[in-house]
Every structure is written in structure tokens, then in C-alpha cells.
Design a protein around this nucleic acid. Structure first.
Lengths: 173, 173
DNA sequence: AAGCGGATTGAGAACCAGTCTCGAATCCGA
DNA sequence: TCGGATTCGAGACTGGTTCTCAATCCGCTT
């Protein structure tokens, strides 16, 4: 977890930010909520990013564009996007939350490297079925789920080395 | 999430707290760490509990037994138990962490009711295989995983009612 | 039993992500 | 353009968790 800002996603860099923005505009109108400049700017940043952004990352991106929004607004807007189903919230055990655009039904789960902090995604065709079965068996009606695998990736030499060391010394140390 | 202190686990109330304590003593000796009175008391509370305890819960249990430990010690000891593999840490989106004894290889995952806050467990025989496959395919070496299903349980009338309402109104409101 | 070196403890301060407050600014339909 | 409702934002606040460091405890040796 040396550099949390380098988290990446394997989701393709869609050029659909504009489409997402139209969806947001529609959702807001439907709820009679104003489409403010701040909401547009924050949503834009999230929609255009292929990474998992923290509230701080969003504020930094705003600054970089010469814009600005109070942190209360950043948090409120991110929460709003989650509520509208246009973003998802993630906790990668860093002590703060990260956000990501929710593009339609592109369900996926995360692999988090405990060495370098990189986050990648995976999708297993059987996972949905398995979790649905497990919930049904317990009389539980699922709404959302979180599936995270923590471990070591093979992206950098440092991670591969850490992995070798880990295998030599053993899991309990 | 009305009453977070009523979380339950379906793990049977094992009488193995004494055994766990011996394991702890051994692990500490092996690492040349002192077996202090506070470590014993905090571990005892966790080993004897069948619930998911927060740091606050642990401190309250200590008080109830006429003992006491500074909160720094409670947090440090819980982190130590996790590091030794004798406990696991969970985040049920309550804004704080909960801890649970890790009895051997009794791997299980959690169902969290967003209405009443109850936490129950499940085990699906295929889940391990699926996650291992997914990680392997991405060249990722898994260490731990977190699988959580958020939804509505059927334990109380209130939860069953909330579920009906939810189904009528639809997921997006 | 007493001494000793090193790790732990604990009260409280510090930290920090996230929330709240409330007057000012903005939005948007008419 | 106007007006009423909503949002914005600077900064105070909250609460879980970590840090600080002097006093204490542990476990080993004599």
C-alpha cells in the first residue's frame, strides 16, 4: 500500500462520459433536484476516470481544472451519485472510501494488492449464482454484495519479490 | 442498523476458549512477546464470545468483569490477535471495525441485514474454488478475502415488512 | 526473592475521514 | 427578470483509531 493513488481499473476507458452525464441530468430532473455546476464537475471527473477515486482525488482533479468545490459538496455529491446508481462506493481498507462510475450492469469484483495498492477487477460467471444460492438458503434477500480478494499482484518486480519472500517464510509471519 | 449490538453468529458456542488461550500463549512465546494480563483478558473475551465484537464491546465486557484496559491497549491487542491469525477483522459499514475469533480453518462469509444490523454467516462449498480460479487467471496470489452480502434478513417482522415494501417500490428509490 | 533490560500499558492528545451548520449564492420555472 | 426553494462552502465538529512517553509489568537470571 505504498502509493494508493496509483490504483488502476481494467475497465476499458469508455468515451461514454457524455452519455452518463445525460443520464445524470435525467435522474436529477426526475427527482426535481437542480443540476448544479458542482454536481456536473464532480460527476464529470468520476465519469471520465478509469480509476477508483477518493474524495481527495476528486478535489485534487477539480483544482487541476481550475475549479473548486467544498469538501462537504464533494462528499454530498458522491453520495448522491451512489444513491442514483451512477457510482459505487468501495472500501479497500485504506481508512477512506473510493468511488467508481457504475456503468450499467457491468458487475465486477476486486483484487487488491497489499504490496503496491493496485486494484484490478475480475468477473467470474458462477459467482452471482453461488451468492444467490447462499443467500436464498438462509432466507436472506440480497441487495448488494462486496467481494474482495486481498493478496499480491504480479504487476511490478517489487510485488513479485514480496510474493516469493512470502512463500519462503510462510503465511504466519 | 437500529441496534448494532445485537449481531449474532451462527457459529456454535464452542467451549474451546481455553484451547485458544494455550495457542495464544504459544504464539507469544515463540515471538518472545510477553503474555500480559491485559492480553489474556482481551483474548478471553473474544474467545468466549460468539458475536462480532467492536473495540467498544470489548472494553464494556472488561468493565463488566471488573477489569480495565486503556483503549490503546484494546486496539493494539485486537490487531495483535489478527496478526497472529487468532482473530479476524470485519467492516460491516457501521463506521467501525468488529472482531471475531478465527477458529482454525472454519472459513465462512457474512450476510449483513441493512434493516436490523444482524449479521449471520454462510458457507458455500464452491466459493473457495471460484475465487481461487478468478485470482489465478489474473496472476494474483490471494492471501485473504472478504465476501459480504448486504440485504434484508427474515429474522424479525420489521425486516420482513421492509422487504415487502422494497419489492413494491423497486430497487431504485 | 530481588534485580534488570526491554516490551507493554494507559491517559490523554492528536489525527483524520467524514458530517453538520447556517448564512450566502445558485438554480430554474414562470 | 423574479422569487422561492435548494445547494454551496468555510469551518467547526464528531467519533473511531493511533500516537506519545513516563510509569509499569514481564520474564529471565543470579
Amino acid at each position: 500500500m505504498s502509493n494508493p493513488s496509483t490504483t488502476v481499473s481494467t475497465r476499458p476507458p469508455l468515451g461514454c462520459a457524455a452519455v452518463m452525464m445525460q443520464v445524470l441530468r435525467g435522474e436529477l430532473r426526475e427527482r426535481e433536484l437542480p443540476f448544479t455546476h458542482q454536481r456536473e464537475a464532480i460527476a464529470q471527473i468520476l465519469f471520465e476516470s478509469t480509476r477508483h477515486l477518493s474524495a481527495d482525488d476528486v478535489a485534487a482533479s477539480l483544482r487541476q481544472r481550475g475549479e473548486h468545490a467544498g469538501k462537504a459538496t464533494v462528499y454530498r455529491t458522491l453520495a448522491l451519485l451512489v444513491e442514483l446508481g451512477l457510482a459505487t462506493e468501495h472500501d479497500f481498507d485504506e481508512g477512506f472510501k473510493r468511488y467508481e462510475t457504475q456503468v450499467g450492469a457491468a458487475q465486477h469484483d476486486h483484487l487488491i494488492c497489499t504490496e503496491c495498492g493496485r486494484v484490478s477487477t475480475f468477473h467470474h460467471p458462477e459467482l452471482d449464482r453461488i451468492l444467490a444460492e447462499a443467500a436464498a438458503e438462509k432466507g436472506f434477500a440480497p441487495i448488494t454484495r462486496q467481494v474482495k480478494i486481498f493478496g499480491t499482484c504480479s504487476e511490478s518486480a517489487a510485488c513479485r519479490k514480496a510474493l516469493r519472500t512470502y512463500r519462503e517464510v510462510g503465511p504466519t509471519s
